[in-house]
């Protein structure tokens, strides 16, 4: 049986959607193994299955979450290397008190900016990071920011339209 520990520590802390979780490092249920990806921890250990794993090779963008505000691929990130980090997933975008959806989530509903929906959480997370950094992106900015996101149904046009509506509303 191979070793699944981290030699330097026996636990880590993740702050996921503003909730702090402490995990032992190891092989038991509710622990995090050294080889666990962040996507696996989020989905299987924390039950946050809104983060989707499409290719599991870092090429499709569907597992995108925010790590200290920056969009990263959770399938290519080891959980043990996220100690002390703030992680935001699709489940963390809604206003916790009011239940109000994030403006991007609402715009995606209004524009039916999805078909099968499997890529949608990743695209919304990358869009959130984009708008946080640049509240009025151009069409090219939007397309570049989402260029690592695979959508096989081709909802791209409706996604771009939804995001543009948000930025146009703000301009007014």
């Amino acid at each position: 049986m191979a070793d699944r520990t981290d030699q330097r520590r026996d636990s880590i802390v993740l702050i996921v959607n503003d909730v702090t979780h402490e995990f032992g490092i190891g092989d038991h249920r509710y622990q995090v193994a050294a080889c666990d990806t962040l996507a696996k921890t989020l989905r299987e250990t924390l039950g946050l299955s809104g983060t989707k794993v499409g290719c599991n090779q870092g090429a499709c963008g569907s597992c995108t979450v925010l790590l200290d505000g920056i969009p990263i691929l959770s399938c290519m990130t080891l959980t043990v290397e996220c100690d002390g980090k703030q992680i935001t997933t699709i489940e963390g975008l809604q206003n916790k008190e009011t239940g109000k959806l994030d403006e991007i989530q609402q715009a995606f509903i209004d524009h039916s900016a999805f078909q099968c929906g499997f890529c949608t959480p990743g695209i919304i997370m990358a869009s959130r990071a984009l708008l946080n950094k640049n509240p009025s992106p151009t069409e090219t900015d939007i397309k570049d920011a989402l260029s690592g996101h695979f959508c096989r149904c081709i909802s791209h046009y409706q996604v771009v339209e939804a995001l543009q509506t948000i930025t146009e509303k703000k301009k007014k």
Partner: peptide, 9 residues
């Protein structure tokens, strides 16, 4: 992913 030990340098 197959198991490995993780060490922080």
């Amino acid at each position: 992913m197959k198991a490995f030990k993780h060490i922080t340098a």
